[in-house]
Write a protein that binds this DNA or RNA. Structure first.
Lengths: 190, 190
DNA sequence: TTGATTACGTGATGTAGATCACATTCTGAT
DNA sequence: ATCAGAATGTGATCTACATCACGTAATCAA
């Protein structure tokens, strides 16, 4: 019940649910396991779930003209991920999500999320705050993109997620920073 | 009562409140008027409100080393703006908000927002969706930043907000695109 | 163990956009 | 009406980073 406790503690940071309420809440999540390299959401797919990461590391990324990859988010344990644009607009996925390492996730359908939000004010509150944090983080990253050069962004990233350096190959870090792998390589060998 | 109706119609797109509920909701908003060039939030300020734009055009921007300005958002009627990082973390403002034109806004304190969210499930729902849309838009802009060159981003911006072209000076559009005014100038004179 | 695939490093060269410098027009205050 | 300060245009030069090209090391499957 590792997964259940992880989610429970995560939720408890924002709202308090009784044990019963949480059990009910949790019953809507479907545990899933993936192997390294497996695709969770592929471009063009219908998207109806979002994912809470229990273990492992995912990436949410966009591919331009089948050539360049840009990583929107690395998703580590206790992070949520999906193609939210597709999920909320009911459009085919333009963002891919796949597994950098073996991973376990909890899957929640959009329908169930809305149902739970409607049933429990507290759940709606939780999701408002979660999205709010995401929004703030996204604005911050945008600013960093406009304001900082690659070196600064690289240092920022490593300060924020020191685990990443050993966990994910360098070309993925480059794809997150929006820089070529060659430039990144030259950058930290100097 | 222009302002009241504008807000009412805006809210009604997401949730239904009774006339009484909306009156109560609306009573927490404070109308304010500003002149072109006036500062609403300045870097370093304590931030405890967010603003719903009734008329005019605001900009939310960051200034780097007192030199470069980057515009995070133009706020037009029915848009919300503030320094959300400062608002949610209770830290001094790092984002400025000021008026590109004369403007009328409705001001809502963070305390009142949270109170209203707690009192009305529907209000919490509204704010969740509003933030959600903001998050999706922010991710989209980030992707565009990584993936597209200045020309494409410029065309995207004008397609999205045709009014901007005549309303705001070009160097502000450049500051939104994260490009020098010279480069932008060369771009649309060719 | 071997061959294929992926990760990574590094030189040479190209280019989008920044920066600097200066001229011109527009706008707003007195 | 006039003057000061914005806003804009445009050339010359500079630079961060991309792209191409090629090499080596690491990983993995049969």
């Amino acid at each position: 019940m590792e997964a259940k406790i992880l989610l429970q503690e995560h939720i408890a940071k924002t709202v308090s649910l009784t044990e019963e309420e949480f059990d009910y809440f949790f019953s809507h999540f479907k545990p899933m396991s993936f192997k390294k390299g497996q695709t969770i959401i592929g471009a063009g797919d219908k998207v109806d779930c979002e994912y809470f990461v229990i273990s492992g590391c995912l990436k949410a990324f966009f591919i331009n003209d089948e050539i360049k990859m840009y990583i929107l988010q690395f998703a580590m344990p206790t992070w949520w991920t999906s193609d939210y644009t597709a999920l909320y607009n009911q459009t085919p996925a333009t963002i891919n999500v796949d597994c950098i390492t073996d991973a376990e996730v909890l899957c929640l359908t959009s329908t169930d999320r809305e149902k739970l939000c409607a049933e429990f004010h507290q759940v709606e509150h939780f999701f408002r705050w979660r999205t709010n944090k995401g929004y703030i983080a996204s604005q911050k990253r945008l600013l960093s993109f406009m304001n900082n050069n690659v070196k600064t962004r690289y240092e920022e990233l490593l300060a924020l997620y020191p685990q990443l350096y050993n966990l994910v190959p360098k070309h993925l870090i480059a794809a997150y920073l929006g820089v070529s792998r060659e430039t990144l390589s030259r950058l930290y060998n100097s």
